[in-house]
Nucleic acid binder design. Structure first.
Length: 426
RNA sequence: GGAAGAGUGGCAGAGCUGGUUGAAUGCACCGGUCUUGAAAACCGGCGUGCGUUAACGCGUACCGGGGGUUCGAAUCCCUCCUCUUCCGCCA
């Protein structure tokens, strides 16, 4: 969430930027309300700290009076404190309710879009920041979509997933399963070679972690919730990986922190049934390799560019046509200040599929996470957090199958062959 | 799952028969003296949030989390979490 100090000092700029998210005057007044409530909070604290100070002093005196045997004076002082206490407890009640109010308001305010974020309502207004400048693959007349290919080569079984679990839980088998494992290893090795520390993290997280990355309360309905133990299945590795450093105060020279992790991701995708759910296009469980960076505030945009460039290299090595979108204000996720989406062209469906999303959250997450660093002046400051998919598997597999299909089978891209152990999938 | 013990500052480790204890001491770290340089030695500094102040500073809260008792709690009580050991179960 946003820092109140920032709302105070940059209110007008923030308001102007939030208009890109479609915030009107009405909604923008939340910012004024936050400052008002925070003013109230401060005045209560000033009054209450004073009362507490009096209480502490009197208590100290009472101890001394008892020691020197002045019982009567001590008892008088006790009565005085007694009356202070009713005021104190009233203040504390007021304080916690106003704090709660501020917190609730802050949670409704999304991150401030970066200057590069285009205006716009929805995905149709996203800006293509890098177009695919070569010809798109032309497939033969009888080319098949990936779900047909999956059947043909016995590598992908949706019905079986339905039997075992339900819709949206596909089963990969034979060379399909090996292709999946190959991709995981390929992506992890690539990230490792870029200096990311590999982590293997829990797939269930507690509510504190989900709050830290902003998945609670905003996206509660999108996560599977294990109510018996009050844990959530992760929708992305971002949640456990970023939370590694929740409540951390790191030294400046430890930055940037670069982490990568492979996990399955679980998403309920509530309310998204429609044309796009066919095959692997939208599933409840898929594998993803995530890259996360924690950086100095001055470096985060530079870092964002390197992460975007890195994801490009992966797609090039997989020989997939892709384009990069800069998300508009209306399509930008809640916590992000700037996001680039990657889409690969799935030739048989003649459709662009989102396979990666790379974002800079600036201090929006770190403020909730209390993830700080000590700067060279010895001051504690919030770090910036970034993350990106590198990459999301199910759709990558869809694109690989469709784009690389030939009469003889699916040709595995050169870079992947040492991982699959086969050059052609048939 | 059952029983017992424990959770204190970056780490180690006192305090825990309630009252100058935000917290001894050691290590680590930073600054200084000394030294040709380094080490050692010595001197000084060394937690976080909030509030207040132009600033020095001051106030307040925090000794696993939450709640309670008390004039006053790291110290007593309740509850939850975690760790260790023993038993049970098990990949």
């Amino acid at each position: 969430m946003l820092e109140i100090s920032r709302i105070r000092s940059e209110k007008d700029v923030i308001k102007e930027s939030l208009k890109k998210r479609g915030w009107n005057k009405d909604k923008l007044s939340i910012l004024d309300k936050i400052i008002e409530s925070d003013d109230i909070r401060k005045s209560i604290q000033i009054a209450n700290d004073d009362l507490l100070s009096q209480r502490n002093q009197l208590s100290k005196q009472i101890g001394e009076l008892f020691k020197s045997g002045k019982t009567e004076e001590a008892n008088n002082a006790k009565k005085k404190v007694e009356s202070l206490k009713t005021d104190i407890s009233k203040n504390e009640d007021d304080m916690s309710s106003v704090k709660k109010e501020i917190e609730d308001l802050l949670l409704t305010v999304p991150n401030v879009p970066n200057a590069l974020v285009p205006e716009g309502q929805d995905e149709s207004d996203n800006l293509v920041s890098k177009e695919w400048d070569q010809d798109l693959p032309q497939l033969a007349e009888d080319a098949l979509p990936h779900w047909e290919l999956g059947k043909k080569y016995n590598i992908l079984d949706f019905e079986l997933g339905v039997k075992i679990t339900g819709a949206g839980f596909p089963v990969f088998r034979n060379k399909g399963a090996r292709l999946q494992r190959a991709l995981i290893n390929f992506f992890l090795d690539e990230a490792y070679n870029q200096g990311y520390e590999e982590v293997a993290v829990p797939l269930l997280v507690n509510a504190d972690s989900a709050k830290g990355t902003g998945n609670l309360p905003d996206k509660e309905g999108q996560m599977y919730h294990v109510t018996k133990d009050d844990l959530y299945l992760i929708p992305t590795a971002e949640v456990p990986v970023t939370n590694i450093h929740r409540n951390d105060l790191v030294k400046e020279d430890q930055l940037p922190i670069k982490l990568t992790g492979y996990t399955p991701c679980f998403r309920r995708e509530a309310g998204s049934y429609g044309a796009d759910v066919k095959g692997l296009n939208r599933v409840h469980q898929f594998d993803k390799i995530e890259i996360v960076q924690i950086t100095h505030p001055d470096k985060s945009y530079e870092t964002l560019d390197t992460m975007v460039a890195y994801v490009e290299t992966l797609l090039s090595k997989l020989e997939l046509p892709y384009r990069i979108l800069r998300l508009c204000g209306g399509d930008l996720t809640f916590a992000s200040a700037l996001t680039y989406d990657f889409e690969v062209y799935s030739a048989a469906q003649k459709k662009w599929l989102e396979v990666s999303s790379v974002s800079n959250f600036e201090t929006y997450q770190s403020n909730r996470l209390k993830l700080r660093f000590k700067d060279s002046q010895g001051k504690n400051r919030l770090a910036h957090t970034l993350n990106g998919s590198a990459l999301a598997l199910a759709r990558i597999i869809a694109a690989l199958l469709e784009n690389h299909q030939t009469q003889d089978g699916i040709v595995i891209p050169e870079a992947l062959r040492k991982y699959t152990g086969f050059e052609i999938l048939n």
